[in-house]
Design a protein around this nucleic acid. Sequence first.
DNA 1: GAGACGTGGAG
DNA 2: TCTCCAAGTCT
Length: 333
Amino acid sequence: MSFSARLLGWYDRSARVLPWRIAPGRAEVPDPYRVWLAEVMLQQTTVAAVAGYFAHFTERWPTVADLAAAGDAEVMAAWAGLGYYARARNLLACARAVVAEHGGCFPDSEAGLRALPGIGAYTAAAVAAIAFGRPAVVVDANIERVIARHRCIETPLPAAKRAIRDALAPLVPGDRPGDFAQALMDLGATLCTPRAPVCARCPIAADCRARGRADIERLPVKPPKKARPRRHGVAHWIERDGAIWLVQRPGKGMLGGMRALPGGEWSDEPPGESGIVRVDHGFTHFDLTLVLVRRETADAAAEGIWWPISDLDAAGLPTLYRKLVVKMLERDA
DNA sequence: GAGACGTGGAG
DNA sequence: TCTCCAAGTCT
């Protein structure tokens, strides 16, 4: 039996049930908007983390036109806590481009999708395959791992991407390419896991070159990690009449475009003053220690908004600031 | 190609 | 506690 037949047979029996997925065998037609939204949310983000956000977004903005008509602030606030906030900025830009330049319908080709904001090689291929049945070569981190092991590719990532893609391309079936891609991702997420893969239940183990190797977990080979430096910052708690002063961070860079507590630039050295509350927060490429100090007044020139303390959940603060606020309120309590 | 860019869960 | 890392994209 062919690679894709074995894989799809397994998928028909074992596909995960996910809110954005149409179960294999159902005649239902996928909604490209929902497929795209899920794919963007799932970039570098776990299924568990995405589920609630996906439900909220699709309920509040059922179509791409609804999303395109939404305001920047409400979309950024709805994304708060999910991370990688450039995705939210690009999400909105993409929705607006689909409405303005494509009459509200997503392009049905990989190239057309790839040209939209926030849609890279992976997402373009995934949407083309899943939403439009195009035989695109979908390669994400799961699929890289599955193929690197199946072919025993020893080249370290990211240089191995070419070999992985070349190995996968001839395996993509003309029929059910979307299920094929999702099957490989499910396989990587549930059986061909980074650690302790379950080869005994793998549908493609028969011809897997890494099966049985004691060092199968070594594949795919990845470059060594770099140490994360620690940085420091000060945030200001400016309170008046049961409200606190919130600002919006610059459109680019860390937490770009997100609502935040005001404060100084982050630095490599600890600040002179010690705060009343402190949080340690890990980002991808550095750890941050942020201290909170009271201030009586905001910068006269600064743009911002007085936000009721009783309704801070609705402010859409990223996790860093939410942690600080929670600690501050616990302290006062 | 390499670095920037979040967060929370698992082992 | 600590490291790894999850359906990547952009510059």
